[in-house]
Design a protein around this nucleic acid. Sequence first.
DNA 1: GCAAAAGTGTTGGGCCTACACCCATGA
DNA 2: TCATGGGTGTAGGCCCAACACTTTTGC
Lengths: 229, 229
Amino acid sequence: MTNTYKYPRPAITVDCVVFGYDGNELNILLIKRGIEPFVDCWALPGGFVRHDETIDEAAKRELLEETFVKNIYLEQLYTFGDLYRDPRERVISVSYFALVRQEEFQIKASTDANEVAWFKVQNTPALAFDHENILEMALKRLKNKVRYEPIGFELLPPKFPFSALEQLYESIIGKPLDRRNFRNKFQKMGLLTKLSEKQEKVAHKRGFLYQFDSDKYEQLKKDGFEFAI
Amino acid sequence: MTNTYKYPRPAITVDCVVFGYDGNELNILLIKRGIEPFVDCWALPGGFVRHDETIDEAAKRELLEETFVKNIYLEQLYTFGDLYRDPRERVISVSYFALVRQEEFQIKASTDANEVAWFKVQNTPALAFDHENILEMALKRLKNKVRYEPIGFELLPPKFPFSALEQLYESIIGKPLDRRNFRNKFQKMGLLTKLSEKQEKVAHKRGFLYQFDSDKYEQLKKDGFEFAI
DNA sequence: GCAAAAGTGTTGGGCCTACACCCATGA
DNA sequence: TCATGGGTGTAGGCCCAACACTTTTGC
């Protein structure tokens, strides 16, 4: 079955920049391509948009198919529409962006991916197409986002010690933060609930655990955050 | 001449949300469509992306062709990819966003537009396709942008009285601002140069004129603004 | 002289930054 | 007992918001 058009049409793809946090470092999810072009090159998960799905749906589907990552919140990032992004023909790509806790996913290669892996953001391999540009833009967005929106939510386990939040922010911003100031600021926002439980089996004083108050989070999201790290 | 593909492909369009300031109110540039669908409906200027131009180029070209607005800075806004945006067939639209001073342009309808006009942002007609959604998103972006980036630049004439800047901000934010605080804040940024000239022929005390210091602006743009209205 | 906008400073409060020591725990 | 990270408070400065009267001009 073929489809004919009066004018040539670019193909449309989606590409996903998925940032994962393992409790220690910020990573990014990549696949090793199983098909040409750039076969055996590392690349962002993604693929062609089907005719019966929205672009948001396409992003979700491709991510699931290629990496087994599912049920995450994908936010649209930017659309890349230069002429020779893809050596085969003209392809326009809509990129997406997500934040996840790695521990929640069993990544697993399938369909067009030979391998799937998390890479340290600071230490990524060469990427196919213009995916390095996409990644760069995603990183910029993330660094910007973290400054005016509390994002620990998506990246930390339900209960976590305060230090985990601090480490997370430090690993995204790339600079050390003042512990006392960071705690004060974050606590003043009122998004965190201090639990009576503490950390277990650590070779130092046990810290209290916290959780995010998601009702308050949703409310602040509506009203607009007043917040700066 | 026809083009055939194995799978059906969506068409790709660009749509431009051009905000104009007339020294008084914030307006938006619309065209009255000259062709189906939605013929004689007001819509955002835009059209199909050609195979030999980037999406950024397409946005510029369509804007020029339909409205005679040219040489402006267009920033990509968002890509709309739902299934039934267009009654004819599947169309994915990449939207763009710009700020201009209206006085600099002689708008004039041509190609697919029967009319072109500026409309008050507060008082737009019903729009074709999902263009109301696009406009809404552009407005959100503008209101957000204005808070952390000085935008008067694009919207005011080279020399302007301070009150023009204040009115501009008030018309975007939609709230009155404290004159003294606004002046202090803006002056502290150091982007403005006070001239020795004053307003002419006004039925009240004449205010000094100011201009933006574009070198400083570029520098701050690099370093990141620290700024909030 | 009157209407209309320009211009101008201060004060109080809140938020930010910088900074150092003791505590609890497991090894 | 030692190494490791947890936990905590304050003081100074800066920025912000709130606030009202005088000046200049054209009509």
